[in-house]
């Protein structure tokens, strides 16, 4: 464990907490893409499938973190699609999720480390996570704005994988450890946030709201 990965995981936890708080406090999921949250839930379940296959004692934090990610993302989907369904902005959340899931699944079968079920699921989860934020970014471009709290959520969510890139550089240099598939997907994922990061740094930090077109 290094500082980059620690802050990456904390940033990811913060993102999940910010979104849950936003929906719970405002009792509304306006401006939140339900499809992105569904895709994240699929990512966690397919990536941490080992939790279900052979039960492992929850002694180490990693298992606890995996359970937190899975339960929090499923609970977020429950809030969006059931509890606060009336506030779900379905007609703006219109990016076809199939256009993300099918290519990720196909690519996972073509480019992977080992052709076995668990490995394919892990690879699918990595590829899907790289593009899972697109429906959310698409929704913001359709509505033309993002609530400040949603911007903070996106900043934390984008920073998590950006910090993981620093973690991978660190591990390559000090531990001679590489995970090529995760690195390539993580770079693609972070690049997708660049436009948002620019808007966040130039606007939200100064107390303005993000309004598109910028």
């Amino acid at each position: 464990m290094n500082i980059f990965r620690l802050f990456g995981d904390l940033s990811h936890l913060a993102a999940i907490a910010i979104l849950l708080l936003k929906i719970w406090k405002t009792r509304s999921c306006a401006g939140v893409s339900g499809k992105t949250q569904l895709l994240f839930a699929v990512c966690f379940i397919t990536r941490y499938i080992d939790l279900f296959l052979h039960f492992v004692s929850l002694y180490n934090t990693e298992k606890v973190m995996k359970l937190i990610y899975i339960s929090a993302s499923v609970f977020t989907c429950y809030l969006i699609f059931f509890k606060f369904k009336a506030t779900y902005d379905g007609n703006h959340d219109s990016m076809r999720a199939e256009f993300l899931i099918v290519p990720a699944a196909g690519l996972a079968c073509l480019i992977n480390t080992k052709f076995d079920a668990i490995e394919i699921l892990w690879t699918f989860s990595i590829y899907l996570e790289a593009v899972a934020i697109l429906p959310q970014l698409f929704l913001i471009s359709k509505t033309g704005e993002a609530e400040t709290i949603t911007s903070h959520y996106l900043f934390a969510q984008g920073s998590y994988r950006a910090l993981y890139i620093l973690n991978w550089i660190y591990r390559y240099h000090y531990e001679s450890h590489v995970d090529t598939i995760a690195i390539v997907a993580g770079v693609v994922q972070t690049i997708l946030y660049c436009d948002f990061f620019y808007l966040y740094i130039t606007k939200v930090v100064k107390g303005q709201k993000i309004v598109l077109p910028a």
């Binding site: 990811h12 973190m65 995996k66 990610y69 480390t113 973690n167 001679s176 450890h177 590489v178 598939i181």
Partner: peptide, 10 residues
């Protein structure tokens, strides 16, 4: 020697 593909991260 590079250690490749141990998915030991979240």
């Amino acid at each position: 020697k590079l250690i490749e593909g141990q998915h030991d991260e979240l």
